[in-house]
């Protein structure tokens, strides 16, 4: 008798619509969350208001660890601004350490960290790379490549010149862009002539 009763009760539960069960579970979880305080609240992702680069980087690290990964590009932008307020060659190392830390934390892939570093602080252009030859890869999109290099040069100006006082590096990058423009103009014309 008891068994039948039990079976009947279990059967009645099993026969309830699944959607109703799910809805009840959601409501229950919501109540639990409310009772538990801020477990699901959005973190404050704004950087600490400081003119000190090390402090700003510490603030960025703290926020990133708290879940503000989506703000990474914005943090880079703000850190460059802070660095420009007190430009010095040592700032390069601070940014490098920050990017390596970001990679070690899994916030960026190693490739992303390298590209970010080289875009802002290296003479070479991230915008000019690829696995195929120039006739096949670069020439068909030469204008786009040069436009991207122009934009990258502006980033190098921020990273190398304004944040790190690396005038030599920046002007080498500037010259490299001009020479690339000239060499690609000639090379791509020669490539096209070969296809005629």
């Amino acid at each position: 008798m008891d068994m039948r009763h039990t079976e009947t009760k279990r059967g009645s539960i099993m026969n309830r619509p699944i959607t109703a069960i799910v809805l009840r579970a959601i409501v229950a979880l919501g109540l639990l969350g409310a009772a538990g305080g801020c477990a699901t609240s959005t973190p404050d992702c704004s950087l600490a208001a400081t003119r000190n680069l090390d402090s700003a980087i510490d603030s960025a690290k703290s926020n990133l660890q708290a879940g503000c990964v989506a703000y990474f590009d914005g943090y880079m932008d703000q850190l460059l601004e802070v660095a420009a307020g007190d430009p010095q060659p040592e700032n390069k190392r601070a940014f490098s350490d920050f990017l390596i830390w970001s990679s070690d934390q899994g916030l960026l892939s190693k490739r992303q960290a390298q590209e970010t570093w080289n875009r802002f602080f290296n003479v070479k252009f991230v915008s000019l790379q690829g696995d195929y030859n120039n006739c096949a890869q670069t020439c068909p999109v030469r204008d786009d490549v040069l436009d991207n290099m122009e934009r990258e040069l502006a980033d190098k100006e921020r990273g190398m010149l304004k944040a790190s006082l690396d005038q030599n590096g920046y002007y080498r990058a500037d010259r490299l862009l001009q020479e690339t423009e000239l060499v690609l103009a000639a090379t791509c014309r020669a490539c096209a002539a070969g296809g005629r």
Partner: peptide, 14 residues
Amino acid sequence: RSELGLKMTPWALQ
């Protein structure tokens, strides 16, 4: 065409 266009990648060029 040969030396810079066909034998080099963009990275090698820079």
